[in-house]
Design a protein around this nucleic acid. Structure first.
Lengths: 162, 162
DNA sequence: CTCGATGCAAATGCTTTGCAGAAAA
DNA sequence: TTTTCTGCAAAGCATTTGCATCGAG
């Protein structure tokens, strides 16, 4: 079984995006009568400043560096909130755990995952997107979303093996 | 949450393919010192004659029509065997259960899933396959396999809703 | 004050496993 | 006879939930 670590080479979002994310979150919480607690602020801030595709466990680790008292149910609940508010995407890369990444508006990408070391690379391809629309239309479907994941062995692991 | 039923409009494989599947299975079992039991024969025969993308529960239902004594652990174990031998693919369409479909040699397809009624349509697109290879190569990956699932609302459900 | 949020532990749902008896080879 | 297989129940795991308590508004 492969080891997906959620680590990758991306950096976190810039300050402007961070502000935007927090604004959207506040707005969503206001609209839904949700409260801004210290735990929620910690979890969402850690998440927004993180990069990559983190599991609940990885997130909990980071969160507890700031506040060791936070329970894992809170992290689950807060990530559900982020998902429901459209600020996070939930991903499943076949290792049995849910991973989360920041949902940036008007930006879409799919994933290339190394079966050996778990590295995750994002890619975008508008030709494929167009073909998907065509296929859906041909079968009478109205497309809502899709999952497109390529699994293989990355350059580093291939080098290491040889 | 959507209801994926695993039902679709496909028919089962023809007799020649059925024979081929059984031969491959026998060969695999021989090579690995596995035994041909009545339960295994029932499960694999039900599976090979089925069509679509069945969950363990659906399979167990069909299997018990022939032999009500078969336990669900046996179905799990037999489908693991089929997966390991390369005769079945395991799929996850986001409803939390594993689904299985017959792996036909030299045939590959992806899926279009209705979020409303769970209908699953298979599609093939060689342009997309080629683009995938290109993307993997560009990132230094050696591609092993991929998941490509399109989620949307099928024609029937759209009619029903209007 | 009120009602949502937290943290813990218990519950859940799918899947896997240990084990004693059954049955292939 | 030996070794694998089966069926059951128990265990595993990630995730969700009930509940008493806490704390934001």
């Amino acid at each position: 079984m492969s080891t997906v670590t959620g680590q990758d080479s991306e950096n976190g979002v810039d300050d402007a995006t961070l502000d935007e994310l927090n604004e959207k979150l506040d707005s969503y919480m206001d609209r839904n009568g949700l409260r801004s607690t210290s735990q929620r602020r910690t979890v969402t801030d850690v998440f927004f400043r993180s990069s990559g595709h983190l599991s609940i466990e990885e997130l909990l680790g980071l969160v507890r560096e700031r506040d060791p008292k936070i329970g894992y149910a809170t992290v689950y609940r807060t990530l559900k909130l982020l998902k429901d508010s459209g600020l996070a995407y939930e991903r499943h890369f076949g290792d049995g755990v849910s991973r989360y990444e920041i949902a940036v508006e008007d930006e879409h990408h799919d994933h290339l995952i190394c079966l050996e070391c778990g590295t995750i690379v994002e890619f975008e391809n508008e030709k494929i997107e167009a073909l998907q629309d065509e296929i859906a239309a041909r079968h009478g479907f109205k497309l809502k979303r899709h999952i497109h994941e390529l699994y293989g062995i990355c350059g580093d692991c291939r080098k290491r093996a040889s």
